[in-house]
């Protein structure tokens, strides 16, 4: 069984799927990612699928599951690099990917995470302020 490597860059975990994954490997990736988000406290996950030739309902569901799991650890997931033929097929298959964020490429995906991270910091500042009313005056 192939195991997909998970790279950590700053507080982002990067997964680049380079091979045709069997279902077991997809499940393993899901579990490995949950483990790594929890152990590293990463705030973002980028899944690069630019080398992926097909996304069927099984792998599509994995994206949605990872997005949901990462949210439980206060992390955001962005799927990047989807091929046009894959996008067309997904829509016809009926898979909407629900709340999974997507970006055109890795660079834009990281920008999405930075933006979400900035929102998070603002949120934290407000939360930690002893006098939140004054903070806005």
């Amino acid at each position: 069984m192939e195991r997909v490597p998970i790279l950590k860059i700053g507080d982002v975990l990067l997964v680049s799927i380079q091979v045709d994954l069997e279902d077991q490997s997809v499940v393993a990736l899901q579990e490995d990612l949950a483990e790594r988000i929890s152990s590293t406290g990463a705030h973002g996950v980028v899944i690069d699928i630019s080398a992926v030739e097909i996304v069927d309902s099984f792998i599509g569901r994995m994206f949605a599951t990872i997005a949901s799991i990462s949210r439980l650890f206060d992390a955001d997931t962005v799927v990047v690099g989807m091929r046009p033929a894959v996008a067309i097929t997904l829509v016809e298959l009926g898979l909407t990917l629900g709340e999974v964020r997507t970006a055109l490429d890795l660079e834009k995906g990281l920008a999405v995470l930075r933006r979400l991270g900035a929102d998070r910091e603002v949120r934290i500042e407000v939360d930690e302020d002893d006098e939140p009313v004054q903070a806005f005056s």
Binding site: E53, I54, V55, D56, A85, I88, T89, L93
Partner: peptide
């Protein structure tokens, strides 16, 4: 075509599973 290849491979992946 590439799109048709992708559609067919995706369909057969679902059916094989």
């Amino acid at each position: 075509s590439l799109v048709d290849q992708t559609k067919l491979v995706t369909a057969t992946s679902e059916l094989a599973r």
